[in-house]
């Protein structure tokens, strides 16, 4: 099975508000897939549906072949999937040792070696009550409890939020090592630099709808900003071509965000007697901003 997660027209409505709409996701086995979107775009709602915390209003979802909307199958999913929630709150009445003992009892493939290694690397005090841990330490503990499960699929909601740069780097290295061991990672993040560092596939969601689904390499190779200077009058519709995502006209200067088909765009500019045509690569941050900006 090549696909570890797939959804088909997955939707979630809260009254009249559609938080997630007809979402078709596909995550390949062994990949590190980033799930991007603005606050309120529907990322957390989607993740919660995948883990059985919410029921979809419509549509289907499967993880490892198990249906997300069936309680018994959802338990099978959670046996094999590690999830770290956005707020990373844990039972504050337990000590670090107690929550480790509690969590490992549910996972037959618990990685004791990874537990010991992470306890050492993340410097977590075993006897300390969770309520006395700082936010960063709680985040580290939540990640440890997920990473040591021995799961084949990791769903992480903002995994590095609240961590200092050193801890962030350590977590990113661990994520990469998980993938190198064959695990699949699906994570949401607002830290575009981190996404660029570790992800190999990008899924972008905006107002509950999927707006980008592509390997990161292809995005970086194909997304371009094309800037042309054309002295004759130009309108946006002159560049309504396949692959043109955005057109900005400012006097004689036409700027375009192009997702593919750059040659055809350049041809069109030349045919309109452009005096200059420049093509520049875009960073993932720029692509993200351009993709979500001004969309209905």
């Amino acid at each position: 099975m090549d696909t570890i997660l797939e959804t088909e027209k997955l939707s979630k409505r809260f009254g009249g508000f559609e938080a997630v709409s007809d979402l078709n996701l596909r995550v390949r086995k062994g990949s590190i897939c980033a799930f991007l979107g603005q606050n309120g775009a529907g990322k957390t709602t989607t993740l919660r549906m995948l883990l059985g915390m919410m029921r979809p209003s419509q549509g289907l979802g499967r993880i490892l072949g198990f249906r997300i909307d069936d309680e018994a199958e959802s338990v099978r999913i959670r046996e094999r999937v590690a999830f770290v929630a956005e707020d990373k709150r844990l039972y504050d009445y337990m000590t670090v040792q107690q929550i480790l003992r509690f969590t490992k009892s549910f996972f037959s493939g618990w990685r004791r070696d990874r537990e010991s290694e992470l306890l050492r690397r993340l410097d977590l005090p075993l006897g300390c009550k969770i309520r006395k841990l700082s936010k960063g330490m709680r985040t580290k503990l939540a990640l440890l409890l997920a990473f040591a499960r021995g799961s084949e699929f990791f769903i992480l909601d903002e995994p590095t939020e609240g961590l200092d740069p050193v801890a962030t780097e350590m977590v990113l290295q661990i994520v990469v090592s998980l993938a190198s061991e064959g695990a699949t990672v699906f994570f949401s993040s607002h830290q575009i630099a981190e996404v660029e560092q570790i992800a190999d596939h990008i899924l972008m969601i905006h107002k509950g709808k999927l707006v980008l689904d592509s390997p990161l390499d292809r995005i970086k190779d194909e997304y371009r900003q094309v800037q042309a200077v054309i002295h004759c009058p130009v309108q946006n519709r002159d560049f309504e071509l396949d692959g043109v995502e955005r057109v900005y006209v400012d006097g004689p200067t036409v700027s375009m965000i192009v997702s593919h088909n750059v040659d055809a765009v350049m041809d069109r500019a030349h045919k309109m007697n452009a005096v200059s045509v420049e093509v520049a690569p875009l960073t993932l941050k720029e692509i993200f901003l351009e993709t979500v900006k001004g969309r209905p």
Binding site: L51, V75, R76, R78, A85, D87, R89, Y91, F107
Partner: peptide, 14 residues
């Protein structure tokens, strides 16, 4: 109090 997501991520029925 924010811990439901952790509990519900475990392979346990409600």
């Amino acid at each position: 109090n924010g811990t439901a997501a952790f509990s519900l991520s475990l392979p346990v029925t409600r």
